[in-house]
Simulated assay, not measured.
Amino acid sequence: MTRHTRYRGRVTRTNSRRTSRRAVYETLRRKVLTLELPPGAALSENELAASLGVSRTPVRESLILLVEEGLVQVFPQVGSFVSRVDPDKVADAQFLREAVELASLEDLPAELDPELVGELRRNLDQQHRPGLTVEDFFALDEEFHHGLLQLAGHGSAWATVVSAKGHLDRARRLGLQETPPEGFADQHVEIFEAVLSGDVAGARAAMRTHLRAVFDDVEAIRERSPELFASASGAVPVRRNVVVWE
């Protein structure tokens, strides 16, 4: 009985550590993607651990995962920084999204799931609600595109798309801070109406225009705010301060 209790205790502690690490990783990733931690921001393991109420170990492990995703960079003897938006990774994510989402429209069934159709209608109504914040619209946008994949029977492919578009998501948020989302919401309506009418060619054309409009917007942001984007030189940043949250 004693051995069993100890064994169960070890499992519990191990699961707790994994849960803590996962929570820290998801929190830090969200802060990077939502620009709460902007491109180029300096990161301190001590400050991050104190603000999140955890030890340095899950913070360090989470930063390693974010480095692997290209969202954090570590410069020896200088420090860790939120990576600047990489135009090449933005382009790769844009290519992946277009390939997956256009292909999925070819697999739409003749009879669409009425429950999913109803959810997408409600989503579009919410997108046109006055006073939406950038994050409110971004969440609805994600749900809409995921919903279209689900209609075509490819909902599980969304996880692959999400994992590849961290740099694109940050660039899109930069654009939404300056551009009202109404135009993108109207494009969603155009795509959805084509889907409902069975016009696959029209839906594909509207989706392609929509996704490329987002990419063009990213390029405009890059021209206006080049300091937020990675340069070809890969210069090491100068550490002036660390990130501290209240």
Rank of each mutant, 00 (worst) to 15 (best):
A194F: 11
V214W: 14
F229H: 02
A232V: 05
W245F: 11
N241T: 07
L196A: 05
R240N: 14
E219P: 07
I191P: 10
I191Y: 15
P226R: 02
E193I: 00
E223A: 03
P237H: 09
F215G: 03
F192S: 08
A194Q: 14
R212Y: 09
L211W: 02
S197Y: 06
R224S: 09
L196T: 02
T209H: 13
E223F: 01
E227N: 08
L211Q: 08
H210L: 02
R240E: 13
L228V: 00
A203E: 12
A201K: 02
A235H: 11
I221R: 15
D217I: 00
S231A: 10
A206R: 09
I221P: 04
N241H: 13
S225A: 08
I191S: 14
R208K: 06
F192E: 07
V236R: 15
V200R: 15
S233L: 10
V195K: 12
E227I: 00
L211M: 08
H210R: 06
R239G: 03
G202N: 10
P226G: 02
L211S: 03
L211G: 06
R204W: 01
V243H: 15
G234M: 09
W245S: 01
P237F: 04
S233W: 11
F192A: 04
V200M: 13
S225H: 11
V218S: 06
S233A: 13
V244G: 03
A232Y: 11
R224W: 05
A232M: 05
R212K: 08
I221D: 12
A194H: 15
T209F: 08
A232C: 01
H210I: 00
F215C: 01
V195Q: 14
S233H: 09
P226M: 01
A213P: 11
T209E: 15
F229P: 04
R224T: 01
S231Q: 13
E227A: 09
I191A: 10
E219N: 07
V244P: 06
V243F: 15
A232P: 00
E193Y: 07
S233K: 13
D199V: 01
P237C: 05
S197A: 15
V200K: 15
F229C: 00
N241A: 07
L228W: 06
S225P: 03
V195T: 07
A201R: 12
N241Q: 10
A194W: 05
G234S: 10
I221V: 07
V236C: 10
V242F: 13
R239L: 14
A206D: 13
A194P: 04
R208A: 07
V236A: 12
V243Y: 15
V214D: 14
W245C: 00
H210C: 03
G198V: 00
G234I: 02
A220Y: 07
L228M: 06
N241S: 13
S225R: 13
V214A: 10
G234L: 08
E193W: 04
R212A: 05
P226F: 01
A220I: 02
E219S: 05
L211N: 10
T209G: 09
G198N: 06
H210A: 03
L196E: 11
A205Q: 14
A213R: 10
L196D: 09
S233F: 08
